[in-house]
């Protein structure tokens, strides 16, 4: 449970950041809703990247210790 939780925050964090940045961008440039769409997608991809990296580190790269 804790492990899944840990990884899902990576994904959620990416999407949240994309949404926030997209919303701000749209407000400045008046480009609604394209900034939001593009940046949420980018944030999602970044989140997936983070999930993969974190999962890799947690399972192999990290030192011994509780997991």
């Amino acid at each position: 449970m804790a492990r899944g939780f840990r990884l899902s925050t990576e994904l959620v964090g990416g999407v949240l950041l994309g949404a926030a940045l997209g919303w701000l961008l749209d407000r400045w440039l008046g480009s609604s809703p394209w900034g939001l769409i593009v940046l949420v997608l980018l944030g999602f991809a970044g989140g997936v990247l983070n999930v993969m990296r974190t999962a890799g580190v947690m399972s192999s790269g990290g030192p011994k210790g509780p997991n």
């Binding site: 804790a2 939780f5 840990r6 925050t9 990576e10 959620v12 964090g13 990416g14 949240l16 950041l17 994309g18 940045l21 940046l39 980018l42 944030g43 991809a45 970044g46 989140g47 990247l49 983070n50 990296r53």
Partner: peptide, 21 residues
């Protein structure tokens, strides 16, 4: 662009994980 998003979203997941747990 994806790498930048990944980098910028780190403090979010870093903090939300601890907080939410």
């Amino acid at each position: 662009a994806i790498e930048v998003m990944s980098f910028l979203s780190r403090p979010i997941s870093h903090s939300v994980r601890l907080f939410a747990n």
